[in-house]
Amino acid sequence: MNFTHLSDRPEAYFLVAAFLLAVGIYGLIRRRTLIGMLIAGELIFGAASLNIMTVNRFFSPDPAVGQIFVLFIMGLAAAEVAIALSIIIAVYRNYRSIHSTDISELNS
């Protein structure tokens, strides 16, 4: 495979998106702070957006739809981050910690 035409092949984008999803899920399992989990979630959002954009560029009859969809994903991600960070700050005020093992009051 010639690397000069790699940017015209959907496989390259698909592999990058699958790698981002795998790294995001790995981080979601492995992280023990809430902000770390939030960052891993953002990686998963990035993977989904890249996958949608790849299908949109190569296989969709209407190339505007995927871009609008990804734009909505970005807006929802921004709203989600704002809410999640305010919850994290509220948790930190109550528990003086944001480690997921310390927030276990309901785990009797």
């Binding site: 902000i35 939030l38 991600a77 981050v81």
Partner: peptide
């Protein structure tokens, strides 16, 4: 998003 997360990091104690 990243700047907001940086604010969250500054307001809490976050290291693993």
């Amino acid at each position: 998003v990243c700047v907001t997360i940086v604010f969250g990091v500054m307001l809490s104690e976050t290291d693993e």
